[in-house]
Design a protein around this nucleic acid. Structure first.
Length: 544
DNA sequence: GCTAGGCGACA
DNA sequence: AATTGTCGCCTAGCC
């Protein structure tokens, strides 16, 4: 049964369904136009390109458009289209050839959307039959599909930005960068482009005669690690200046000067895209702009968060984040008694592990011991080796080895879980999350040892990262439902993997916070406490 | 204009 | 070789 696409070309249904499997397994398909404004761009591209390059994307919109329709999202799409006239051409202009939409083209885009919705609605009905009773039923019908609407609403809500704060930061940073530039050029005894790693390497390693620490694929590394080593081990004054310059350049270029340009004229807010299949593990991704990597680690970076504000009168931002969620998921899967016990009694998990591994009481754990335990805890999630740990902690490899050995001695069931993840992936060809989301993993049978090791790390990490993603998606759907029924007065603005940001009426903070906490902690039954920390404040910095 | 590489922001 | 998953800025080099 061939299905007519938006462009009038034929697309065999069998092919569509064949394609859908990997989407559900969240394989290699990178782009799904699941958000309204992006969908329309995609349709425009499909109209221009036909089902070639943009094939995968088109499939995705086939699946997702009808859901929007069934939830009355078409009005939302029209509303967004209105103000997205300019961003559409902007976005296309970014990577593709420049296209400016005039009135006529805009009309055509709308027609494509309508026609596509008709076709995909029929397709969806067929797919429903295909998927009913399949292993993907819960994941597809109860999670990913309902989430489409949640994401559409989040994108529609947008987040308010205080541009005055950023403008002031920009000025301060520009001054400091000019001063750093002057100093660096003076020390190098000539001007050069500090942003160019190639030119910087020439200055540092050729002209200044500093030792090469590490090589990249094409040259000599000048990354932060390298510059820190140079700052520590040589008496050249240049590396620390470059480090400071780099930090400022990154913040200014990526956030401080760029975010204000992304403000929608009509709404006065930033409407990022939350991409539903942007990550192979089942996590969301965010783009245009990416609001999932807004700085928080360094003090100057953190300040950028103060520009994200509650944009409605008598509202506050409310931030709810899962505490140690991936470690809790690990505890859920491996059922290690000591780990479960630690979470059930609400202990500081890193300090607890440190006390176990070092054989000292909890209250005698040093900062050093705790931070090592923390690094190992994260390392487990990433499939770390002794070499990797030694580098991360700046300790000897043998120390790292003995620490890891001691760790697995204390937590044998974690070792068992890791081995089972790998064995299962080898047997079935995929890693599987708590909701049955699958990620195909091919390289476990490779003859290349390095690739096998990589595949093994993926096999473990995907289960943990993906299950945590499943959990928060479930929570988002529940919360969205409560918002729809009016039980909650908050609006969902952002998702940052283990964190949700809301805009909440000030007089509703208490009831909404408790309801949100309740839905986040019970989104899926893990068999151990799930802890959610909640904070409020006038901006994203002070809500912590 | 487009792409690859280096780098670095986040969980 | 050496810890998972993303997005995006900037440069350099090719067309």
């Amino acid at each position: 049964m061939p299905t007519r696409s938006a462009t009038g070309n034929t697309l065999p249904l069998e092919l569509v369904i064949e394609k859908l499997g990997p989407v559900l397994a969240n394989a290699s398909i990178k782009k799904i136009g699941q958000n309204v404004k992006y969908d329309l761009i995609v349709l425009k591209q499909v109209g221009v390109e036909v089902a070639g390059v943009y094939f995968d994307t088109m499939i995705a919109s086939f699946v997702l458009n009808p859901i929007r329709r069934s939830h009355g999202m078409d009005a939302l799409a029209r509303e967004l289209l209105d103000y997205d006239t300019i961003p559409i051409s902007d976005l296309i202009g970014k990577g593709k050839s420049q296209i400016t939409l005039d009135e006529v083209e805009l009309q055509r885009v709308c027609e494509y959307a309508a026609e596509d919705a008709d076709v995909t609605w029929r397709l969806y009905q067929v797919l429903s039959g295909q998927l009913a009773g399949s292993p993907f039923e819960e994941l597809f019908f109860k999670t990913e599909m309902p989430l489409v609407e949640v994401l559409a609403e989040m994108e529609h809500n947008g987040v308010a930005l205080d541009t005055d704060i950023l403008a002031k930061m920009s000025n301060t940073m520009a001054q400091r960068m000019a001063e750093l530039t002057r100093q660096i050029h003076h020390l190098a005894e000539h001007e050069f482009n500090i942003d160019s790693t190639k030119q910087l390497a020439n200055v540092l390693f050729d002209e200044q005669g500093l030792p090469v620490i590490r090589k990249t694929k094409t040259g000599r590394s000048t990354d932060a690690d390298t510059l820190e080593t140079l700052a520590r081990t040589t008496d050249s004054p240049i590396p620390p200046l470059v480090l400071e310059y780099r930090e400022l350049a990154k913040l200014k270029g990526t956030y401080v000067d760029t975010l204000p340009e992304m403000i929608c004229e009509r709404t006065g807010r930033i409407h990022a895209s939350f991409n539903q299949t942007g990550a192979v593990t089942g996590r969301l991704s965010s783009s245009a702009p990416n609001l999932q990597n807004v700085p928080v680690r360094t003090e100057s970076g953190r300040q950028i968060r103060s520009a994200f504000v509650a944009g409605l009168k008598d509202h506050t931002l409310l931030v709810a984040d899962y505490s140690q969620i991936e470690l809790r998921v690990l505890a859920h899967f491996c059922q290690d008694d000591k780990l479960l016990e630690a979470f059930r009694t609400g202990l500081d998990i890193h300090a607890f592990v440190a006390s176990q591994v070092n054989g000292v009481p909890m209250d005698e754990v040093t900062k050093e011991q705790r931070s090592r335990a923390k690094a190992v805890n994260f390392g487990i999630i990433y499939g770390q080796t002794a070499f990797g740990l030694s580098r991360a902690l700046n300790i000897s490899r043998s120390d790292a080895e003995s620490f890891i050995a001691e760790y697995f001695l204390r937590y044998p069931r974690i070792r068992l879980f890791i081995d089972e993840c790998i064995a299962k992936a080898r047997r079935t060809g995929y890693a599987e999350t708590i909701l049955g989301r699958r990620r195909p993993i091919e390289e476990l049978h490779s003859r290349n040892k390095q690739r096998v090791a990589f595949a093994e790390r993926i096999a473990v990490n995907t289960v943990l990262q993906g299950s945590a993603a499943d959990l928060i998606k479930k929570a988002m759907i529940a919360i969205h439902q409560a918002i729809r029924t009016g039980r909650l007065k908050s609006r969902m603005l952002l998702q940052v993997h283990d964190e949700l940001v809301f805009e909440t009426p000030k007089n509703r903070v208490k009831p909404d916070a408790e309801a949100i906490r309740g839905m986040m902690t019970t989104a899926l039954p893990l068999g151990l406490p799930v802890v959610v920390d909640i904070a409020t404040g006038p901006n994203w910095l002070e809500s912590k």
